[in-house]
Design a binder for these strands. Sequence first.
DNA 1: CCTTGTGAATTAATTCACAGCT
DNA 2: AGCTGTGAATTAATTCACAAGG
Lengths: 275, 275
Amino acid sequence: MVAQRGRRNGAAAHKRTRGGATPDADNAPTAEIPAVAENGADPEVRAKSIPEAAVARLAVYLRILSAMAEQGATTVSSEELSTAAGVNSAKLRKDLSYLGSYGTRGVGYEVAVLVGQIERVLGLTRQHKVAVVGIGNLGHALANYGGFPGRGFPVEALFDIDPDLIGVPVGGIPVTHLDDIPQVCADRQISIGVIATPPAAAQTVCDRLVEGGVQCILNFAPVVLQVPEHVEVRKVDLAVELQILSFHVARRADNEPNGKVAESTVAGNGAVLQS
Amino acid sequence: MVAQRGRRNGAAAHKRTRGGATPDADNAPTAEIPAVAENGADPEVRAKSIPEAAVARLAVYLRILSAMAEQGATTVSSEELSTAAGVNSAKLRKDLSYLGSYGTRGVGYEVAVLVGQIERVLGLTRQHKVAVVGIGNLGHALANYGGFPGRGFPVEALFDIDPDLIGVPVGGIPVTHLDDIPQVCADRQISIGVIATPPAAAQTVCDRLVEGGVQCILNFAPVVLQVPEHVEVRKVDLAVELQILSFHVARRADNEPNGKVAESTVAGNGAVLQS
DNA sequence: CCTTGTGAATTAATTCACAGCT
DNA sequence: AGCTGTGAATTAATTCACAAGG
């Protein structure tokens, strides 16, 4: 059907360079997979083309499932899991179906199996070394996470420009100067760079990370980064988040002219809910 | 079975209460406006139903436009602005069209006009008082932003559970105990609550914020919050962001198999490489 | 000529609804 | 009986492409 031609891989050089990606709705170009992947390596149905939106939710399911496993649960139904994740069960099942068919009809899913499959699809069986750039308030907080979510994302390098910080260990790792980013990232095989610098420094830092071979960037600076197209950027933007909330407040105020309605909510305004 | 049992508010059995929202693609139920709005209030074309995705981008455009204005630019074309924002120009124009028609064909847009219109639509002409809960590393960082993005989001209350912190001013504001959340939020008319607590505390804190009349929550805790449906939740989830990046790394590795399988990459053994 | 603004076309994401298996 | 898995239907978001207007 769609013959999705057009995407030229060769030189292309379309300066796509999109690096924006609001934590919200922007970051979502759909993770199309070129459909190639003949592989033949895996007996399982290799991931074919999981929608980006589903990927984000799978990560959420994974966390919930891990918690359930820790509490001793061995199986879970789509209804339970979807409720815990705040989505509806049809969406959840559709999302899980991208993993393959690991449920048992009439019963549900085995928690351990789902955990394993989600980890596989998200690539969490590999390790992804992280570098944090900008050891201010936020960078400090990030560095102290010490090996981010669970294991799998060890922080292996810290960078800042402040001479007083260079060499000082934060969360066990000594801070290196910004100038050494390319070198150190290349040496330590950093795969994810986290930018927590002031906005003015962000693009330069980004360029150096790319120079050092970093392919993925998580950007906390309120700047739209320009990157070559093989680099993946995700953005966490506080200002944008707050402004989106502001929009919703304003919208509510516009629609519901009078001041309060408090909890008449529930069935009250059918307008806002989905179906 | 973790908790989800008690979440029944009112009748409505499964009435949603979504609070998840991955910073990415999850947070995006499309900001449909109830269509009611007989309006008749504004001479301008009142916001009719801006797509959620567009709202997020408008916030980005706003920042870029503000920077341009500061540099003395007075007009801008869709091409320029879209490049700076990392989107294509058609999308940009479509987004701006939700504001009304403020461009001049053959010329472009007046920067100042766009800034004003975006601020209007995002509700940035109001003030939104913010409370930060959880004054750890992250909360500290947030509190010190002191009046978040530019103006319009003053931090007016800080909360924590640690007795050593109570009363201590952070960024000029004394920390109050978690127990006083409902009271203080109601008194100070807080409209946005930021949750930066450990995951275990997040739901309780959330409940108290809601009790205090807070309608919007920005959640940094890795937990899916359950909230009544009139409350808007946005989530910033570090783990999810990293896992999405991980997914893209894996995807690339699968598609672009330089060597065959190269080094023990794909699944198989959990322990890959050193640590 | 410009560049905007927008219907129409396309593509992605979500939801429905039910067949199929346990 | 019950729950998964998934085509089909629906709804949202993006992109195209060009008429309209300075």
